[in-house]
């Protein structure tokens, strides 16, 4: 496999975590423009632990996920009281606040003669755990997809469980769910924390793939794309957001022939897609039809 193919597949895998994070909130009826912040928190936290303190990647990932969940919980506590567009705006504001905190974060120490750590807008270089452990790009790609498969397995299990049905009921009609005894606020907070942890896990893998992160990596563009993945792919199944990532990155890569105009072409294609498939490619109707046909 050549470097380019590995790079594209790695990107698809990495951003799938972010897509699944946004999807988890979308099925409970919440549209967050702020999942990129938790992706960034995971990236910074794990980068600090592995590069500055020599912690192994698996342990750093667990710590980063815990921090991502905690941050999402703290953002969720005041914002989940809001509805619809107000919640979307609040998550966007929270994400921008977190990004600005990254810009203000100067926390460095000398490791083996080299100054490492977040340096505000200068970014954070030298997250080399993967290189220093001798992990080749192909092996790292395998790691990403193994972790993604585990996450997908968890999603599949949840979707078939009573919890999955409850989560979808929150998205359809929260008042009805509450009248049936569902603790809507607590469940939504739990979902927000889980989505934060998932985004943070993606950030951990991203930082160690890239070896360098900076606050601009986690700006609003990433938040918009993370929502677009789920909306393009469809909300009918867990595989929808993954299909969304493949379509999104596929369109971006496939439109290279248009050179400088390719982002205009890309935007146009996404708009056309959403006009014809407003709930995405794998919407509930298609998923129902597929299940009836193949079960």
């Amino acid at each position: 496999m050549d470097d380019y193919t590995i790079g594209v597949l790695t990107n698809i895998g990495l951003f799938s975590f972010l897509a699944l994070s946004a999807y988890l909130l979308l099925i409970t009826g919440e549209m967050s423009f702020g999942q990129q912040a938790f992706f960034g928190i995971g990236a910074y936290c794990a980068g600090i632990l592995t590069a500055m303190y020599g912690v192994s990647l698996p342990l750093a990932a667990i710590a980063a996920m815990a921090l991502g969940a905690l941050a999402a919980l703290l953002v969720g506590l005041p914002t989940l009281r809001l509805k619809g567009l107000y919640f979307a705006m609040a998550t966007l504001a929270a994400a921008e606040m977190i990004r600005i905190l990254f810009e203000l974060l100067h926390f460095q120490r000398t490791v083996e003669g080299e100054l490492l750590g977040p340096d505000g807008t200068q970014g954070f270089r030298g997250i080399r755990w993967v290189f220093e452990s001798g992990v080749e790009p192909l092996h790292y790609l395998a790691l990403i997809y193994v972790v993604l498969a585990v996450v997908l397995g968890l999603f599949a299990w949840i979707e078939r469980s009573r919890l999955g049905a409850t989560l979808r009921s929150l998205g359809q009609d929260p008042e009805l769910a509450a009248s049936l005894g569902v603790d809507v606020n607590r469940l939504k907070l739990g979902v927000a924390a889980a989505a934060g942890a998932l985004a943070a896990l993606g950030g951990v893998l991203y930082a160690h793939h890239n070896t360098y992160i900076e606050p601009r990596n986690f700006d609003i563009m990433l938040g918009i794309h993370s929502l677009a993945y789920a909306l393009i792919g469809g909300l009918g199944t867990t595989f929808g957001p993954l299909l969304g990532v493949v379509v999104d990155i596929g369109l971006v890569e496939g439109s290279r022939v248009f050179e400088g105009y390719r982002m205009i072409v890309f935007g146009g294609l996404v708009a056309v897609l959403l006009v014809f498939r407003p709930r995405g490619l794998l919407d509930e109707r298609v998923v129902h039809w597929l299940r009836a046909r193949f079960s």
Binding site: G54, S56, L57, P58, E112, R128, W129, E132, S133, G134, V135, L138, H139, Y140, L141, A142, L143, V146
Partner: peptide, 17 residues
């Protein structure tokens, strides 16, 4: 195979060159 290699790699951290 790749996943197995990675698990082995995770077990040790070589010194930085």
């Amino acid at each position: 195979k790749s996943a197995l290699f990675l698990i082995l790699a995770l077990a040790s951290l070589p010194a930085a060159a």
